[in-house]
């Protein structure tokens, strides 16, 4: 299921927390990135119909345009950021109860509760009180609750919050499984960039209520500079000089260079320069910026544009 948001604005009182956002969440796993307070959770709540937008529209590709929030929620699973569980209930009861509120007959809700608890890895602990679960188990129980009515679109709000490395790795593997193997569309809201790199195909970066970058991870991390890591043999002044003719060069020693090709210069120019210098290119790797570098750059630019450059 894909979602298209047009000119969405959300306000709490007089404060605008989402400002004229237009973006699409395609099928697959999409990371929704931003610092705390960037407006990620508000976008998710607007998608769920829990917040009434001050302006703009949200359309779900597979649903009629006039679908009520209840109809939309029948197709969406939401895993909230904050800890929330039904007290005095076991994991199984909680998930089954939420299934029954989603119009599942009791038998189906029970069966489905067993299935999703097994899927998230809580099969052994399903009859224990949720209140006695560890942080990681509660996150899994929240995910099971989001999955019980078999939604096509999953909105995960900071799903790895408060998890230890093992728990985080388990959760990321689960999200990957949901997206790749079970064909769910996933919107993964987080400020942990490595999580997005681990599970998402594309990302949307928000800052101060606005979308400041979006695209596939490949576009976001590789689209700015033509940066290559080059290993040549033998290394000499001639090859250094030759590479400097095709772009900016950083000599890392032992025949290793980082080359930023000049505009309109093709990668074959590197091989030509090596040939002229009597060297052989042993390795040529296109280098990408990390998502973190992209994030810091676009967020910094957005902040600067709003407040003016730091003096």
């Amino acid at each position: 299921m894909s979602v298209s948001i047009k000119n969405l604005s959300v306000r709490y009182g007089t404060r605008t927390v989402v400002d004229d956002v237009s973006v699409s969440f395609a099928r697959g796993a999409v990371g929704l990135l931003g610092r705390n307070g960037a407006g990620k959770s508000s976008v998710l709540k607007a998608l769920l119909g829990l917040l009434i937008p001050a302006h703009g529209s949200i359309s779900f590709v597979d649903l009629p345009p006039d679908a009520s929030p209840e109809t939309v929620r029948a197709h969406i699973g939401y895993m909230p950021e904050r800890e929330a569980y039904l007290p005095q209930c076991s994991g199984f009861e909680m998930v089954a109860m939420l299934g029954m509120l989603s119009a599942m007959p009791r038998k189906d809700a029970y069966r489905r509760a067993h299935e999703v608890l097994y899927l998230v890895g809580l099969e052994e602990q399903r009859y224990r009180s949720v209140a006695s679960y560890s942080a990681g188990m509660r996150q899994k129980a929240k995910l099971a609750a989001a999955l019980v009515h078999d939604p096509q679109l999953l909105l995960l709000d900071e799903p790895t919050n408060g998890l230890d490395p093992d728990g985080r790795s388990d959760m990321l593997a689960l999200v990957r499984q949901l997206s790749k193997d079970l064909g769910k569309s996933v919107v993964f809201s987080t400020h942990i960039l490595q999580d997005v790199e681990a599970v998402c195909d594309s990302a949307v970066v928000m800052e101060q209520g606005r979308v400041v970058a979006h695209g596939t991870l490949r576009e976001l991390t590789g689209g700015v500079a033509h940066q290559y890591g080059v290993l040549v043999d033998p290394a000499n002044d001639a090859i250094t000089q030759g590479l400097m003719e095709v772009g900016r060069v950083e000599n890392l020693g032992n025949g290793r260079y980082t080359v930023w090709l000049a505009d309109k210069v093709d990668v074959r120019a590197i091989f030509a320069a090596a040939l002229r210098a009597g060297s052989v290119v042993r390795s040529l790797v296109q280098q990408r910026r990390s998502l973190e570098a992209v994030f810091l750059q676009v967020v910094g630019q957005a902040s600067e544009a709003r407040t003016g450059p730091a003096s």
Binding site: L50, R82, Y85, P87
Partner: peptide, 14 residues
């Protein structure tokens, strides 16, 4: 208070 209500609000019911 304990945010249980959020879970209920997420269901496809009014």
């Amino acid at each position: 208070e304990d945010r249980t209500a959020l879970y209920l609000f997420l269901r496809p019911v009014g």
